[in-house]
Design a protein around this nucleic acid. Sequence first.
DNA 1: TTTTGAGTTGTTCGA
DNA 2: GTCGAACAACTCAAA
Length: 482
Amino acid sequence: MATTIVWLRNDLRLTDNRALHAAVARGGPVVPVFVFAPEEEGGWAPGSAARYWLHQSLTGLGAALAARGSPLVLARGPSAPALAALATQTGADAVFWNRRYEPAAMARDGEIAPRLRAGGLHVDSFKSGLLVEPHEVATRAGTPFKVFTPFWRHCTRELEPPAPLPAPVELRAPARRPASLPLAAFGLEPRPDWADGIRRAWQFGEQGAIDRLAQFIDTALDDYADGRDRPDLEGGSRLSPYLHFGELSPATIWHRVRAAQAQRGRMSESRAAAAYLRQIWWREFAHHLLQHFPATTDAPLRPRFAGFPWIEDAGALARWQRGQTGYPIVDAGMRELWVTGWMHNRVRMIAASFLVKDLLLPWQAGARWFWDTLVDADLANNTLGWQWTAGCGADAAPYFRIFNPVSQGRRFDPNGTYVRRWLPALAHLPAAHVHAPWNAPANVLAAAGVRLGESYPAPMVEHAWARRRALAAYDRVKAMRG
DNA sequence: TTTTGAGTTGTTCGA
DNA sequence: GTCGAACAACTCAAA
């Protein structure tokens, strides 16, 4: 019976995996393979935190596949010859994969498919990582959507994602066991080991995703509308890394949340579920935009922003990266990111706004830092988020929307719990002063053991002044054409 | 083709 | 303390 290679990429799961399911349905042996090829990512090879996550996930996925009968094969890129060699070794006649949507990955896949076909292989690809693929939707004029709400309305009007496919119970291994690299050959584990915080914060892999989704639905979904904005509470879903690596499919989320929504009697709780699903659509929208505007990973979508007066200041960038801006909510977020590989979404917005608008540092520098440090670093989401913050994207924040890090901190971390958790230097400051320690009376600072400028930095810029400076800079862009 | 309504996530100021 | 308006036009999507 014919053997099928399943080329796994950002779909590291057994459940609702269409390529895998189709391969099993052929009835013959199935050879799952992961090819590590960071050179083929168009300059966006996985960052440090994502590499660590990938290492853990491949470990778990390998065990799960082995338990079902066909161990995961690991190979080093380039992808095309690696796949061809594996087909020769195993006598496979087909290669299946789930489609990716990043520009470089699409270009690469588009080259590989005909090459494999020319070698006599049957090639098939599947939709599996998005509810709606970018080419499936367009405005009536036939153009890509550039505003979220019409995109969302269009997509949700009649869409009912197909029910998730079950995980295959058993996989037949090929008669001849193919060669496989040891996982260590990818060099994904950090040396020295700085990943302890990530390890403590996360349960990796598909089982982690399933557990996390269930926990979110049980404990946080009903309060999501407000809870999602509270970094001091566990109000978000924390599913982003699983979605990025495809350890959980959006269709699975959609169906599980809808089922929970149907069970909830109260209108407010049903609304909360709708608010959460809307976030899933933001992810879809990000992929839609990235596919249609592939240059936006590095360049502003609005051309006039090419002339924005960004400041080059390596020292200021380093202070932001290290969480030493002197604004506690920003620093706590940057610290959370550094330690756990993740930052609460509300805090991401505050930290990003600070970089772009208070420091006038280019958003690309922030995007690169997030790319390297986030376990959920996702080219589509990261690009959309930073362009939105900088106001240079398709559906961007108004230029005058400049987050005040003190009022944001007070509003969304009212007791200072989040700030104190990540900034031990402020652990004994009372809530009234924890978001603006420079305004605290000297005796309060002394009692809390805070020495501004020593144990915790003084603010690197005054926000009110920085706000006026940013408005002036945006005024210059506003006057330009484009 | 032209028109019209609308657009994730805020802040500040002054009544 | 609370509330509404101003912050500016611009672009998008659909009728």
